[in-house]
Simulated assay, not measured.
Amino acid sequence: MRTEIADALLRAVLPPWAVGAARADDVSGPLFAVERALCEGAGPRREGEFTTGRWCAHRALVRLGGSPVAVGRGPRGEPLWPPGVLGSITHCPGFRGAALCRAGPARALGIDAEVDAPLPARVRDRLISTDEAGRMRPEVAGERLLFSAKEAAYKACSALVGDGRVPRLAELRILVEPGRHGPGTSGRFRVRVPALTVDLDGRHFEGRWKRSHGLVLTSCVILRPGTEVPRAWRPGTEVPTAQG
């Protein structure tokens, strides 16, 4: 898969006011010194994932209108973005990507990529509820799509509320909007979070998914209450907030 195709797949799951960069193959750099230190001693596979994820992050920062800067790592392994920037990095076999947006209309952003294959039974039984599975069509991507959506939502929640209040993956409930779920299709999903865990409800989550090229990609954005995001908004412009 060419880089432009990987970019297009990631762009398909992002709101129009977010940017991203993706690759199907690994790169060897360049990295900032602080980033190189973070992957010292890692095996070849992990080093490739990390380096290419940072490469995507640097490229996305430029697309957001900034300059490449070192993207550090927080205590939970999360990437550390420049002030005023929200973002997420994901990787799976055949895909690495990073997505960013500016803080303001959004409070958090999470993305996830998965190989389009059945979930292992132990993962399915632990993380996917009977109700969730029952709402999906019986295609291969059904439970994998639910899992990826949970991962993207978890990353967004984790960035927003921090340790101790993040819902577990099994507690996040995903409702995929009706539509075709075959290869090459896309759509949206909703997220329900446990009461008293996050100071938001499902109305503040915007989830999107894409199934193509042997992959399932998802994104989840948590919006500020009362914020109306015009579809034409682009990074660097002001977003009006609903009054009252």
Rank of each mutant, 00 (worst) to 15 (best):
D112C: 07
L119T: 07
C92K: 04
V27P: 02
R137S: 11
E4L: 03
L31E: 09
D163P: 15
M1I: 13
F50M: 08
V216T: 09
M136R: 14
A98K: 10
D26K: 07
E206Q: 10
G48K: 04
E139R: 05
V69H: 07
R126N: 04
A12S: 14
G110I: 08
G202P: 03
G74T: 02
R192N: 09
F205P: 10
V13A: 01
L175G: 05
R11L: 03
E139A: 04
L215W: 11
A24E: 12
I222L: 14
L10R: 05
V69N: 04
Y154M: 10
V229R: 13
G182P: 00
R73Q: 14
R224A: 14
L100N: 05
D199C: 01
Y154F: 15
T51N: 08
A12C: 03
P75F: 14
C101A: 09
A117E: 15
L217P: 02
E139G: 05
S186K: 02
V229F: 11
A159G: 10
L196Q: 13
R173G: 13
W55D: 15
S212V: 01
E143F: 07
T130L: 14
A98S: 14
S212R: 09
L145N: 03
G187Q: 00
G66K: 08
I111K: 12
P68L: 13
R180D: 07
G84M: 06
A152F: 10
L14N: 08
L64E: 11
P235Y: 08
K155M: 09
T185L: 03
V71H: 02
V198L: 15
G184E: 01
L172Q: 12
I111L: 11
I5G: 01
V239S: 00
A195E: 15
A156R: 06
F189G: 06
V123S: 10
L127Q: 02
